[in-house]
Write a protein that binds this DNA or RNA. Structure first.
Lengths: 343, 343
DNA sequence: GAAAAAATCCGAAACGTTTCGGAAAAGATA
DNA sequence: TATCTTTTCCGAAACGTTTCGGATTTTTTC
């Protein structure tokens, strides 16, 4: 375990000069710089991160805090986030701390504790709520963070997001353009910011098409196959007007919708058109549906690099404008949409 | 961000005494101890982990290093390990660092780098190989670690394991006791220690029953449904003697085996008996098979607590004998085994 | 050769915590 | 009250790194 002292002793330099050479200070001669770097490599020197953090305030470690829930092993977002973020941080020589909270533990004291230990340089926040207490808390604490998503209007923190309002508008207006007016939206768990803005985009498209918004056509909850199936059964079981088209928040919901429609003896797209947003989670391919599914596509895995870029930028004190990014999505028309039947 | 200095100034004590009070030194008066603890709580004091690590050598952080692979999001072991370990460490006020290596990155330099930064108190090792270089490396580095499994004979490091050799013996001899002699073993990826010892248990049971070991009846690879299916098709497609029973390394393989046998028009257990080891991964229930599957059961999730106990014990310098634990498994007979047909 | 300017280097202090080796205060005894 | 013993407290130093504010060395100019 080599230290600066070891290198300094060997090269007959002060530890100050060794430190300055390793950190490329301008007033170190090129000759000294090379000698020091070679010796450091030869001695397999790594700066002691604790010492460095104590002095410079930087440890090279960042955290992700997620709540424990029963279904955590099946949560595609969680798995993707953990694997993707960890790989990105590892690739930058940073360490990724994963903290899983007990199921009903209040979140802010957890952040307070982690911040209080002064170990982490910043946090990634995923799944933001419409009124997410974490954001104000971390801003007040003065610690770097980046949000996967956006909350509110006056956004003064780093984020990476896609245009969820617009993609829901595009999916819905694709259906209205084919004559559909009775369109269901299967959305996520309410209170999440992306869920809220997707509903806004859906409603805007209905308004633009002069269609009425019917409350029973907007259903939310965990976005999995089971809910896709049960929501669809519910939509076609009541006395209320039945949808001729369904917008699904993700491809897992769409899988459940396809299954339910088949069980009900309804055909896609002849009887009911279906569109979805596709995060491209690994276990599901929209193109593998029959009929193939029309989607807005934004691979979740493309989030991790810009998120990590923004967070490291925030840690380094880069200007906020460079730390707020919008990712693109692609509209891909396949075979799951037909004109509304004139019934 | 309160420090010892703040508390000391407020209570008119030295920082030494504050530190000693907070750490329950015996020569601090009870009155002083309480005053200090109350003030620390009132000021929301958390010891600076970097400072602590620098002095005491302990950060309260431990690491898990896993290689990136394409299927990481579907890897039940990985997901379980990450969620389970993280929750255990969080519950103990420790921080869990997850480091995902690039796909073909050599492993030892990664450990060297992490150790060199002097941030982590120890490591959890999962999925040990028969000749696992990590173990000797970490022993030489003098850093605490715990292994999920065992390697070799002279085991002088902390571990938590189950008796894989014995469970494979039990599953196989359950079949030999019912007259089966031509028994297949669908195992994991060779070179892993549990894979090696399970094969040993299987062979021992065959020997004890006077049955011949046929090499084509031992198949290995990723233990998923796809391989369960393809291995089974292969076993029943060649000219070599076909098995009358199959031992599966996990329940996912067994799912694939059931599917393949159904496709081949063979019945469980009338035509082919099937047994498996059940880690109780959340997405699969052995009892939900039809016919219900006979298993040795050892829930993977029961590993995390003892693993973490052993690692924290190792970090605290507890005697090795208390840090080597064997977990139990249960033999559960259900309906997937019948007597061998006298054909 | 002397003085000034530029280049290179370094001592001291800081960061926040822990602990060794006393020092000081309090209590007990004659 | 003085002395001895016990209890409580604390100054100094350490941990490894970074950087401020010089100090020293080398180079340039006259």
């Amino acid at each position: 375990m080599a230290t600066l002292k070891d290198i300094a002793r060997t090269l007959d330099l002060s530890i100050t000069q060794v430190s300055r050479a390793l950190n490329d200070h301008s007033d170190v001669s090129e000759e000294t710089r090379l000698r020091v770097k070679e010796m450091a490599q030869a001695m397999n020197y790594h700066p002691n991160a604790s010492a460095r953090k104590l002095v410079s305030g930087r440890s090279g470690m960042v955290g992700l805090v997620v709540p424990q829930h029963r279904n955590i092993g099946q949560d595609g977002i969680f798995i993707e986030a953990v694997a993707g973020l960890s790989a990105q941080f590892s690739g930058r020589g940073m360490q990724f701390v994963l903290h899983i909270m007990a199921e009903h533990e209040p979140v802010l004291p957890v952040y307070q504790r982690l911040i209080g230990k002064a170990m982490l340089d910043g946090f990634v926040l995923i799944d933001p709520l419409d009124h997410d207490p974490r954001i104000d808390f971390l801003k007040k604490a003065g610690i770097a963070f980046v949000v996967h998503g956006r909350v509110g209007k006056a956004i003064d923190y780093p984020y990476f997001d896609i245009e969820n309002e617009q993609l829901a508008y595009d999916l819905t207006s694709h259906l209205t353009a084919r004559g559909h007016r009775c369109i269901a939206l299967l959305n996520g768990i309410s209170g999440r910011s992306y869920v809220t803005v997707r509903k806004q985009g859906y409603c805007r498209a209905l308004r633009d098409a002069g269609a009425e918004e019917l409350p029973h056509l907007h259903l939310g909850g965990e976005m999995d196959e089971a809910n896709g199936l049960t929501h669809t059964i519910r939509l076609f079981s009541g006395d209320a007007p039945r949808p001729t088209a369904i917008v699904c928040g993700n491809v897992r919901l769409a899988r459940g919708v396809y299954q339910a429609l088949a069980a009900l003896g309804l055909r896609v797209p002849t009887d009911v058109s279906v569109v979805a947003h596709d995060d491209e989670l690994p276990s599901l391919r929209a193109s593998a549906f029959f009929p193939a599914l029309t989607v807005t596509k934004a691979p979740l895995r493309d989030s991790w690099e810009p998120l990590v870029d923004c967070l490291t930028g925030a840690i380094e004190g880069k200007p906020l404008a460079t730390l707020q990014r919008i990712g693109s999505y692609t509209f891909i028309e396949r075979n799951s949409v037909a004109d509304a039947a004139m019934a």
